[in-house]
Simulated scan of single mutants.
Amino acid sequence: MTSTGGVTASWLRPVPAEAAPRLTRAGHLGFADRRLAELVQGRPPGVTGSQWSTAGRAALDLVVCAADTRLPRFAVRFGPPAPDGSPARRVERLTDAVCVAAGLPLLRVESSTLGGGEQVRRFVAYVLDARSYAEGTDPDGGETIGFRDIVGRLPDGRRGPVNDLGALARADAVAAYVAGRLADPIVRGLHVRWTDGPAEGWSWVEARPGRCLVERVRLTSRGVVRGVDPGRLAEDLAAVALGERLRAPDPAAASLVDRDDLREEVRRLAGRRDSFDGGFAFDHLCAD
């Protein structure tokens, strides 16, 4: 029996010894493409047969286990945003409910662009590094530098936050601007944390005068993310998604959003500030 985030995980079973890990990091092993039913010892209490039948088939991109016991600590799932009321959203809710009942925290990333084995692996490695950093920080030792704020040498040679997942995208935007493929080199963004809900990050760059390439990511942490603010991490993930689109032969050929329309969307988001944990810190983006 092991503990995951305060829940006794008596319903979880170890990943079989013959399964080869996709990731080895900070005392953990990561196993790709596991089904939820493979990780749970029978139907947890409070879960109906229909719920279990649906959720048990859910594919998890990476399951992170303790290296010594191979017992799951948390799971990660990437996927496109599912509209409210859709069958896909219903499956997500059932999967979330079963994971809670089984004591398996599920870290969910909703993105129209991000996904795939290597992106998931890099993301989980980052989460584990941030957790290790946070666990090694003495809470009584005074003010410390956050994991995301550690400064060092960036890929383009400049100094800046080395744990900014969007650093490569920001460098790619500058290169695309110099090559005449973008109207502006600056990657902008914002983030919010919905009260009792996911964190949401936006990132955009002006691809053509008055026309923007925009990415949005939602991150449901469930206490898995430590050492980095989930909202800030969601914004960095949106920048990573933006970088993926910038690598297209002609990023401006993709669907673009009018800059004024984007500003109006930001204003509408700001109008919901009472729904955010921590308020809204990006009023400067609402100005004309």
Rank of each mutant, 00 (worst) to 15 (best):
M1C: 10
T2L: 12
G5P: 10
A9W: 09
W11E: 12
A17K: 11
P21D: 02
T24K: 12
R25K: 12
G27W: 00
F31A: 02
R34A: 14
R35T: 11
E38N: 11
R43Y: 06
R43P: 07
R43V: 14
P45S: 03
G46P: 13
S50K: 04
S50D: 05
S53D: 10
A55P: 02
V64F: 06
V64G: 06
C65T: 05
D68R: 10
T69A: 11
R70E: 05
R70D: 05
R70Q: 06
P72A: 09
R73I: 10
A75D: 10
A75K: 09
P83A: 10
P83W: 07
P83V: 08
D84I: 09
G85T: 10
R89F: 08
T95I: 03
D96H: 07
R108L: 12
S111A: 05
G115M: 06
A125Y: 02
V127T: 02
S132H: 13
S132G: 09
Y133M: 06
A134T: 03
A134V: 04
G136F: 00
G142A: 09
F147Y: 15
F147C: 10
R148H: 15
G152Y: 01
G152N: 02
R153G: 00
P155T: 00
G160N: 08
D164R: 13
L168A: 11
A169M: 05
A169S: 12
R170K: 14
A171E: 04
A179E: 08
G180M: 01
G180C: 01
G201A: 10
S203R: 03
E206V: 02
A207E: 01
V217W: 09
L219G: 11
V224R: 06
V224E: 07
V225L: 15
G227S: 05
G227Q: 07
V228I: 12
G231E: 09
L233R: 06
E235H: 03
E235I: 02
G243A: 05
P249R: 02
P251G: 04
R259H: 08
E264Y: 03
E264W: 07
E265W: 12
E265T: 14
R267V: 15
A270C: 05
R272Q: 15
R273S: 15
D277G: 12
F280I: 09
L285G: 09
